[in-house]
Each structure stands twice: as structure tokens, then as C-alpha cells.
Design a protein around this nucleic acid. Structure first.
Length: 639
DNA sequence: GTCCCGATGA
DNA sequence: TCATCGGGAC
């Protein structure tokens, strides 16, 4: 008996019947005007206190709720998902619009209709699946197999932001996304966003915040970009003391079995924590006796057996061999039982698909909808529209309201100009221009001479060279450069002439690269019509091409300013800033800033690479010869 | 709605 | 090693 047939048998005998849950419908907020009644809207707007905010890609309204709690009037919100806007309209005192924001003109027309001509804050988080780590894995896989175009239109949604920014001229802008947004397109997307902001006179601030530092009991971290008009002052919210736990937010909810579909239940006792009390706030009698959405999924009998064996914090690795249905090498975290004493795994939209990452700490079932909402710090008075899986998705996609509150409060302070000038961050030091000048002058005199810098090369030849240069000493590659370049300007000519290339590369210890080069050449020839692409997505689809090579080709072959991140440039950035713990994306932003108005162009990148090879070497850097020593924290300390 | 599937960055 | 506002087949 083979393993495969065994697995199939298990599947068929335990699969649960499909069960569609109740579709909850919610009436709009009592105080909101009828969106179709222009006069009512106009009268209502006159009464709405400042500051005003608009929430784009609002979803259920986690961000809106935080803004509202901190005193913003969320006068309008937009999202493509009708059920999410139904939730938003029911819970947030404001106008809601359902529609596609990839073309913002329709929403702008609606704003005109309502008479909303300017707001204080434009906020929102475009869909992040294209940027998230989990999404990248799947999308990358599909692109490589040719099942999907490498361009993901959703990645362009943030551009809609600026069409609306230009229409409303907000005093502040808030952009929320997954941390991986900082890596998207080799970091170029974030840099483009910041440049768009600066071009409009906003001071731009970027940070990745961990939700648990703001009372949200999850590992969730999110990237925020804040733009403040006229370079006004802004300070990130200070973390709140202590570490919240899952127990604090769901410990007081009544015990329910798996598969319980009762939409309305009674509380069993008082809240058991400060946080629990906060989440029950605002329940009005007689609603305060009732709890909504505490409904659970059914559990397969074989899963139930596994859940019983899992202790809090337990994962797939703790499941006995004979009960495992999945590969354990790649799915070590297939199951996770949460712990009352710890943070939860991030509540993502995935919770709408299955609950294996969200097994209740004590009960042998996955989280109820209300428990997921609680862990996202939605208060119990917040209701969700739609069928169960849709409600889970809305919750997973939301900005946790308490995190939203923290940010909202910081933005409000900035709008009211309550930040001391000394706290100013994110401004360019006055000396940046000189740093670039000094480096350019040094580069003019000391640059290294390589064959590829003297010749005019085709994009394919540049791609070929960069694939060889990556993680290799340039002098090494210089010895085979003539041979490489003689193979012709196209992948076609490369493939027909490269038979005797392998021994040459092998002699330099670069054997594996000849295989890589050949498969890259075949890919470009067969799948890209022989043309080296000029965009990041298609470049990185080429086998063997990662962030660095893609950025290098964009810069050196197509003249597109790109910050190159390799061991040399990263080392220089770390030494300049005098810090060892900054993540790569911050170093990239720092280098982008230091490159000055001309950007990280060919000269800048070559100069940095040469500086790293000749002066700012890994061991025994020659700080005495360094042209930018005056701007370097490490270099000045060493003197 | 339910089940199964994996690459990526720090 | 850890964690992931994920996705498609059925």
C-alpha cells in the first residue's frame, strides 16, 4: 500500500461538507446622511468637526475606527468590496463609496458630487498581496511556470493615491502596507512613492511598526509612510509599555464547540483585563448583554485528534508522525495552537481559508470570528457584514484599530503642530550635496578601469556581466571579459558560441555560472523574444536574476537610477550611518538620499562600488584616503 | 467553503 | 531559524 493511496483515503473519509453560514446585513450608521441626498450631505458636512480624513481601500474600517477614536471625522471612505463597505458604513460615522480605485476618476467625481473639496488627511492601504512574502512566493512560482503575467496591476494601485492627493491637497497623507512593500521591485516602489511625496512638498517619513507595541496582541508588523505638508514636524507614536497577550483579549469569551453557528450569544462574565474592558466599551443596552460573531468552524475528526494533542504554542512539528497529512519539511508550521500568555500569529486574510494557524489556546477548535476581531482589537460593538468567510477576510485585512489609533494620534499632533522642532526627523542633512560632490571628484581620479566600462554594450551583455560580477571580485571577471563579450550581443549568439566558455569560467572557479548563464540566455530567447526587459518584474523572472542583478541592469543598461545593494554598498551605508542593526530597506533609503538630486545613477553606483573595493574595504579600511570621511560616523570615530 | 501547497527575507 | 493583510483546485 503506497502513501499516496493512504492519503487519498484519509481525504475522502474526513472531508467536511460545505456549510455556508449566515449572510449578515447591516444598516448604515444612524448619524450618516443618505449618500444620494446632496443637500443632506452638505448640511451634514458643515457640522463635521475637523480634522477631516478620507480612507481609501478602507475595507471593514480598522483604520477609520482608529482615526475616529482620535478625533478625526472620516468624511468619506472607499473600497471595491461591497460587503466590506457595508461593514464600514454600519460602524463608521461617514460616507461610503463602493467601486474600483485603480481608476480614481469615478471616486473623485463622487467627492465632487458630495461637495468634498479638501481634507486634512488622505489615508489608506492599497491591497498588499503583491508585496507580501507569502504572496510573492506563489506569484513568483506562477510567473516562472508561465501561468501568469509578471506584471501585477494591483501594484500600481498606490498611484491612485496621488490622483486623489492632487485633487484634495491634504495636509497629511498616510500610507499603510506590508513591510515587504519596502522590498517591492528591489525597493524602487517605495523610493518612487517617497519621491512623489517630496515632489509635492511633503516631508516623508517611513517606519515599520510592530502592532504589539501598541496593545495589539499579534506578531503583526506593518510599514507606514506619512507625508506632512510643507515638511512639518512629525514623530512616530511612542510604544506603549507592556506586552499584550491573547488571553487578555479573548479569555473572557464564552466557551463554544466547533461548528457553532449561533450569531448571537450571551456574555458569561465580566472582562478579565484592562484590554478586555476596553474592547467591551461602547456597548449600549440591551446589546451589552449580547455577543455577536462568536461562531466557529467545524473541525475534521482527524484534525480534532491532532488539536487535542497540541499544547499552547505547539506546531505541526509536535504532531505525531502517523497523524500528519502534509509534508513536514515545508509545512512545519501548518498547525499552530495559540497561547493565552503570548502574542497571536498575525491575523491575516488567510484565516478565511482555514484556521490551522489559529487554533484556540484551550478549546479544540479554531478561532471564532469574534475572537479574530478581538485579537485585531476591534471592539465588540463593531459588527461585520457578510458570510462568515467574508467576515474573517475583512478582519484579517484590517489595520488593527489600536495601532490605527496610535498612528492617528501622531498625525493629529503633527497637524496641530505640537511637535517640538528638535524632534524633527527625516530631513536631508545640508551636507548631502557635498558628499556626492566629493565622491564624484574622487571617482573621476581614482576609478577602476574595466573593459565593460570602456565599451558600449547591449543590454544582454550587461546582464551577462552582472550575472558574473555578482558576489565575485571584478578583477576575476575582467580576465574573462573579452571572451564573454566576444560571444555576441544577443542571447542567441551567446548560446550558439558558448560551447568553450565553460572551461574558461571553471578555471576561475566560476563553473556553476556557465549553467546559470545558459539557462538565463534560453529564458530570454524563448520567453522574452530575445529582448532583455527594462522592468524589474520581468528581469527577476529570469533564472539567476535577483534584486541586485535586476537593479544593476536597470541602471547600467537602461539608465534608470537604482540603489544597488551588495555587500560593498551595504557596508559603506552601515559605516556612514554608524549603525549595524538597520534593516536593508533603511540602508537603501539612506543611500538613495545620499545620492542627491541626480539619484543613484551610473556614476553614483560605480563610485560606491569602487569605494568599497579600494577604500572602504571590509578589513582595514583606508579611512585616511576616504573622500567622504567627514560624513562618516565610523570614519570620524576611528581618527 | 474546504483542503492542500512553498518561496522569501531578515 | 522564524514568520508570512497568500493562492489555486475542487
Amino acid at each position: 500500500m503506497s502513501n499516496a493511496s493512504e492519503t487519498i483515503q484519509k481525504r475522502s473519509s474526513y472531508r467536511l461538507p460545505t456549510h455556508r453560514g449566515e449572510r449578515i446585513r447591516l444598516a448604515p450608521h444612524q448619524m450618516s446622511p443618505d449618500p444620494k441626498d446632496k443637500d443632506a450631505v452638505r448640511r451634514w458636512l458643515e457640522e463635521r468637526p475637523r480634522p477631516w480624513a478620507i480612507d481609501l481601500f478602507c475595507g471593514a474600517g480598522g483604520l477609520s475606527l482608529g482615526l475616529e477614536e482620535e478625533g478625526f471625522s472620516v468624511v468619506a471612505a472607499a473600497d471595491a468590496d461591497q460587503v466590506a463597505t457595508e461593514t464600514h458604513a454600519a460602524n463608521i460615522h461617514g460616507l461610503t463609496w463602493t467601486g474600483d480605485l485603480s481608476d480614481p476618476s469615478e471616486f473623485i467625481r463622487q467627492l465632487d458630487d458630495w461637495g468634498i473639496e479638501e481634507v486634512d488627511l488622505l489615508a489608506g492601504g492599497p491591497p498588499c498581496q503583491p508585496f507580501s512574502t507569502a504572496g510573492m512566493s506563489k506569484i513568483g512560482d506562477l510567473v516562472r511556470r508561465g501561468d501568469r503575467s509578471p506584471r501585477d496591476e494591483r501594484a500600481d494601485l498606490w498611484r491612485s493615491f496621488f490622483a486623489i492627493v492632487d485633487r484634495l491637497n491634504p495636509r497629511a497623507m498616510l500610507f499603510e502596507n506590508v513591510p515587504n512593500f519596502a522590498q517591492a521591485q528591489g525597493g524602487a516602489l517605495l523610493i518612487a512613492l517617497l519621491d512623489e511625496l517630496k515632489g509635492r512638498g511633503y516631508g516623508a517619513h517611513v517606519e515599520v511598526l510592530e502592532a504589539w507595541r501598541y496593545r495589539v496582541p499579534q506578531h503583526r508588523s506593518r510599514l507606514f509612510v506619512i507625508g506632512i505638508a510643507e515638511e512639518g514636524n512629525f514623530e512616530w507614536p511612542k510604544p506603549i509599555k507592556g506586552r499584550p497577550t491573547v488571553g487578555q483579549v479573548i479569555g473572557d469569551l464564552p466557551v463554544v464547540e466547533a461548528g457553532v453557528r449561533d450569531e448571537v450569544q450571551g456574555y458569561k462574565g465580566p472582562p478579565e483585563s484592562v484590554l478586555g474592558r476596553l474592547l467591551r466599551k461602547g456597548l449600549t443596552h440591551p446589546e451589552s448583554q449580547l455577543i455577536r460573531d462568536h461562531v466557529t468552524r467545524s473541525v475534521r475528526p482527524d484534525d480534532a485528534e491532532i488539536y487535542k494533542l497540541l499544547k499552547p504554542g505547539g506546531t505541526y512539528m509536535d504532531v505525531p508522525e502517523h497523524l500528519r497529512r502534509y509534508r513536514s519539511d515545508t509545512f512545519s508550521d501548518k498547525y499552530l495552537r495559540l497561547s493565552f500568555e503570548d502574542l497571536s500569529r498575525t491575523i491575516t486574510a488567510h484565516i478565511a481559508k482555514d484556521g490551522y494557524w489559529y487554533i484556540h489556546p484551550r478549546e479544540d477548535r479554531t478561532l471564532s470570528i469574534r475572537e479574530a476581531a478581538r485579537i485585531q482589537t476591534f471592539p465588540d460593538r463593531f459588527r461585520f457584514a457578510g458570510q462568515p468567510s467574508n467576515r474573517y477576510r475583512q478582519i484579517g485585512n484590517a489595520v488593527p484599530p489600536l495601532l490605527a489609533s496610535a498612528i492617528a494620534s501622531a498625525v493629529k499632533d503633527a497637524l496641530e503642530d505640537r511637535i517640538p522642532v528638535a524632534g524633527t526627523t527625516g530631513r536631508q542633512p545640508k551636507s548631502v550635496g557635498h558628499l556626492r560632490d566629493n565622491l564624484s571628484r574622487w571617482f573621476g581620479q581614482s576609478k577602476r578601469d574595466f573593459p565593460w566600462r570602456r565599451l558600449r554594450l547591449s543590454p544582454w551583455q550587461i546582464l551577462l556581466l552582472e550575472m558574473c560580477l555578482h558576489r565575485t571580485k571584478a578583477e576575476q571577471v575582467a580576465r574573462v571579459a573579452d571572451k564573454l563579450l566576444s560571444l555576441g550581443e544577443t542571447p542567441d549568439s551567446f548560446l550558439s558560441n558558448s560551447r568553450d566558455l565553460a572551461p574558461v569560467l571553471s578555471s576561475l572557479g566560476l563553473h556553476w555560472r556557465s549553467v546559470n548563464l545558459a539557462s538565463a540566455a534560453e529564458f530570454v530567447r524563448d520567453r522574452l523574444a530575445g529582448e532583455v526587459p527594462d522592468n524589474w518584474q520581468e528581469l527577476t523572472a529570469i533564472p539567476g536574476v535577483g534584486d541586485y542583478i535586476a537593479s544593476a541592469v536597470l541602471c547600467f543598461a537602461f539608465g534608470r537610477p537604482s540603489v544597488l545593494m551588495d555587500t560593498n554598498t551595504v557596508r559603506i551605508a552601515r559605516r556612514l550611518l554608524g549603525s549595524s542593526d538597520q534593516p536593508n530597506w533603511q540602508l537603501r533609503l539612506a543611500l538613495h538620499k545620499l545620492a542627491g538630486p541626480r539619484g543613484a545613477d551610473v556614476e553614483w553606483n560605480q563610485a560606491l562600488l569602487d569605494l568599497g573595493a579600494l577604500v572602504c574595504t571590509a578589513r582595514a579600511p583606508k579611512c585616511g584616503e576616504c573622500p567622504i570621511r567627514a560624513y562618516c560616523k565610523t570614519g570620524t570615530e576611528m581618527s
